[in-house]
Design a protein around this nucleic acid. Sequence first.
DNA 1: TCTTTGGTTCATAATTTTGAGAACCAAATT
DNA 2: AATTTGGTTCTCAAAATTATGAACCAAAGA
Lengths: 160, 160
Amino acid sequence: MKGTIVAQLTEEQRQLIEKIGIFHEQQGFPPATGRIMGLLFVSDKPGLSFEEILETLNISKSATSNALNMLLQMRVIEYTTFPGDRKRYFSVLLDNWHQEVINKMESILGFSKLLRQANEMRGNVNPEMNEKVLERIEFMEFLSKEVPALMQKWLKERQK
Amino acid sequence: MKGTIVAQLTEEQRQLIEKIGIFHEQQGFPPATGRIMGLLFVSDKPGLSFEEILETLNISKSATSNALNMLLQMRVIEYTTFPGDRKRYFSVLLDNWHQEVINKMESILGFSKLLRQANEMRGNVNPEMNEKVLERIEFMEFLSKEVPALMQKWLKERQK
DNA sequence: TCTTTGGTTCATAATTTTGAGAACCAAATT
DNA sequence: AATTTGGTTCTCAAAATTATGAACCAAAGA
């Protein structure tokens, strides 16, 4: 990994990377990890190597390694390889919205199960609260029930 | 605030509070703040005072104050007062799912705007990526467009 | 076999977050 | 006027998170 000179970013690009980074931080990503997402979205290359990422963002090797592995494990990025080239070229995984929505729904459903437990545990001391909590549970369940149909509708709509 | 003896929690309740707390941590709440949400969901009282919260969860006054103010500001809890009683009685805000969904959609829409910028900035060097990113943008926009109708459907469905 | 490449892992430093405890304060009570 | 109540705010310590730099390593190339 010699000191390759990497195409520098414009101020515009830099700013957008930071904004995308901040969005990801708000979703629970560590800063450097969010910035990598920003870079991968902003870059016009089909894939960026470990080295390019590290140099363009000025982060250390270890931070880069950890961040990339985290993003791979979360299935939000992917990489391509080429014969005769040991490098991996990372890019945003763009085909996973389906799975992402499903995961979100599962998380919501998990919470609704906890609320159901809470409702049972509370007994009928406060029926008004039980009812309201139940309403919320049912709304969550309604959402997860409806979402598959919504995704179908989307697929149909953009097919045209 | 004298050393009032507060109804202790069962082990079952304690565990459920922790689970609800962990769910909230995953959504970005600090631990104590998540636990307060757990307590408010599990408790069968219509509202818990500052003192009761602090004593049942064994957290400090300052942590309690900060957490409650944070939750109030996020509009996930509310409080009731009674004439001749200076205390506030805190409870989970249960009527805000509508606003919560709207907020989430706005956040998603904000991200889609960033992606649109990224697409413009990239130009047409990598048309395949542009197209996939655009697809994702449009999916997000589709979601925000469909969600109001979905909420209407929910309202209708549970009216019956 | 020796070196380079493309990373990973480890120890540790810097930063951020979180919470405790004490001081403080205004309104109500004595 | 003094005290109590229901908190808030400040300072600081502990803990957790994030990132650095160096050491390390396996595969490939010279």
